[in-house]
């Protein structure tokens, strides 16, 4: 390496070549090390898919595409279908999102508009809510919410043991609310004040400003937040495992027991082997693909606003 090369890493002034050479060498090796570490992340991502696809091969060969539509899960006859788990996952997630979305949006509006001290306290509270481990939500759901739901619905003459789609959806709502709210808050905060003030200036009420100006301006970021919440609800294991009832059937009503892909995995994996284990891996692969698709959408929408939000 000679002192006049104009490579970016070696262009710094240096006292002498004898000292410079080892430095440059160290520089390059450090750089390569960092690169390897960074690439590791991408490799892991690919490895997930490869590993699960490999491990679920037997199930795909045995059931083919029927795996998606069969609702049988019978370890005795060794026939497995993914439909109950898929339906349970989609149902609880959709329900949770439907409840959480309006709540999160108006909460974010309130936090953005509130006086600074209140907004800071509420923001911190929301952050802490997001930090509580999911198992604690699950335990609370199991011992507090389920009996409560049971009692409540008995008043309306609905016979349920408290476990089921609705309870799972409510727990998921509580869990994803802070996530969606936090992203929405950030998105709403980055709206230029000029826009809001102009809207107020032409006589819009706060809600009209929010609906017609803020919502439209930040729609992509808000959608990104929605997908983040969706991703969390989709892959949530413990909270759902505790309250869903873990029945391997397609739920007929909101009060029926159900299961989700993640809960099925956690529940059955320990005692499964052979084809059942392979079927569980196939479920895992389905979940991975779903989560991946949702994350890709989330990143796509968030990236559009990322530059404006200062990449959080």
């Amino acid at each position: 390496m000679n002192a006049t090369t104009h490579e970016p890493e070696t262009r710094q002034g240096r006292p002498s070549l004898a000292v410079a050479a080892p430095h440059a060498c160290f520089d390059i090796s450090f750089r390569t090390l960092c690169l390897i570490c960074a690439v590791l992340c991408g490799l892991l991502m690919v490895a997930f898919f490869a590993q699960l696809a490999l491990a679920s091969g037997d199930a795909w060969r045995a059931f083919g595409l029927r795996f998606f539509v069969s609702s049988e899960w019978n370890p005795v006859t060794n026939v497995y279908g993914a439909l109950p788990a898929i339906v349970g996952t989609l149902l609880t997630t959709a329900l949770a999102l439907a409840i959480a979305l309006p709540l999160a949006f108006v909460s974010a509006l309130f936090i953005v508009d509130a006086p600074p001290w209140l907004s800071r306290i509420l923001g911190q509270a929301v952050d802490l809510l997001a930090a509580i481990p999911s198992i604690i939500y699950g335990m609370w759901g199991l011992f507090v919410l389920c009996p409560l739901m049971q009692e409540l619905w008995w008043r309306f003459d609905i016979d349920t043991n408290g476990f089921g789609v609705l309870t799972a959806a409510l727990i998921l709502t509580l869990m994803i609310l802070p996530y969606i709210c936090a992203v929405m808050r950030d998105v709403l905060r980055m709206t230029p004040p000029m826009l809001r003030e102009s809207a107020f200036g032409v006589g819009c009420t706060r809600w009209e400003t929010a609906r017609d100006i803020l919502l439209r301006y930040g729609i992509r970021g808000l959608l990104g937040g929605v997908f983040i919440g969706l991703g969390r609800a989709l892959g949530e294991t413990m909270a759902v495992l505790f309250v869903a009832g873990n029945v391997m059937e397609v739920p007929g009503s909101l009060f029926d027991g159900c299961t989700t892909i993640a809960a099925t995995l956690a529940n059955n994996f320990a005692e499964a082997d052979g084809l059942q284990r392979s079927a569980l891996f196939a479920l895992g692969l389905i979940l991975l693909v779903m989560a991946f698709a949702i994350q890709v959408l989330a990143q796509y929408y968030l990236r559009m606003t990322g530059a404006k939000r200062g990449e959080k």
């Binding site: 590993q51 699960l52 491990a55 969390r232 892959g235 294991t237 995995l265 991975l288």
Partner: peptide
């Protein structure tokens, strides 16, 4: 990739490490 991995269900990671 990192952003996507942050949103990966943790149960999948469990399966992966198991294998």
């Amino acid at each position: 990739c990192a952003n996507v991995m942050m949103g990966m269900p943790s149960v999948i990671v469990g399966l992966f490490v198991y294998m």
